[in-house]
């Protein structure tokens, strides 16, 4: 039996009268790349915050095996620490200049190690944030719409980078997004969340990198799950 990095059973999260997560089950296997799609308000970010340990008011069985790292939609770098120090924050206490620089090299930011975060572009800052998450060698990498605030060109480059880093380090990944193409391009498994439950599961073709043309039909089905009718589905 494959090891499970995330095991969630009967998860309920209530905000007042509203059930944001309603008896949700989820399993993420070791090294598996899972994308979680959903409209805004579907509870996907709530689920990620619970797995990150930022929300402790949920009921149900939640088991996460190993180290967890998070990359948020905003890079959330400390502006008063130089770039490499922001990365070494991920090591927590260990003054790992060398390790930090190695992680920066992996996101092609070696030259910016000494820079202040406010001098970086949006894409660069987000890559530092990725380096900070990866430097911990996490067993589970949580990505909360990390490309949502980037322009289209930078976003495409980031997809390639994340794919590359995942193949090299093999953490289990849970990517929360509302971008269907992103999910289909990157994930082993695509889950659709609606009204606090997982309502559909899709498996894109195994090869990587995936060609856009091979995904057209699947894309239409996922969009239909999300309540969007396209020409292909009609």
């Amino acid at each position: 039996m494959a090891q499970h990095t995330v095991t969630v059973r009967g998860l309920v999260r209530q905000f007042g009268p509203r059930r944001v997560l309603d008896d949700l089950d989820l399993v993420v296997r070791q090294g598996e790349f899972v994308a979680l799609l959903g409209r805004s308000g579907s509870g996907k970010s709530t689920l990620l915050r619970i797995l990150a340990g930022l929300d402790r008011d949920a009921d149900g069985e939640i088991a996460v095996d190993g180290t967890v790292s998070v990359a948020f939609q905003q890079p959330r770098l400390l502006p008063w620490r130089r770039v490499w120090r922001n990365v070494s924050l991920g090591l927590h206490g260990v003054d790992g200049r060398e390790v930090a620089e190695k992680a920066l090299a992996e996101v092609q930011l070696t030259d910016h190690a000494q820079a202040w975060p406010l001098t970086l572009s949006g894409g660069e800052a987000q890559r530092v944030s990725l380096a900070r998450a990866l430097v911990r060698e996490p067993d589970l990498l949580l990505l909360d719409e990390p490309f949502g605030a980037l322009d289209a060109l930078t976003r495409l480059a980031m997809h390639r980078l994340v794919d590359d880093l995942w193949q090299r380090h093999r953490p289990a990944v849970l990517l929360v997004t509302h971008d269907v193409d992103e999910a289909l391009e990157l994930a082993d498994r695509v889950l659709v969340l609606d009204e606090g439950r997982i309502v559909a599961e899709h498996t894109p073709p195994a090869g990587r990198p995936r060609r856009h043309a091979d995904l057209t039909e699947l894309r239409a089905r996922v969009l239909a799950d999300l309540g969007v009718v396209t020409d292909e589905a009609a």
Partner: peptide, 14 residues
């Protein structure tokens, strides 16, 4: 691998 990332950022700057 490194090329698309760099080009994307350069475009923004220029």
């Amino acid at each position: 691998m490194s090329i698309p990332v760099l080009t994307a950022d350069r475009t923004r700057v220029s």
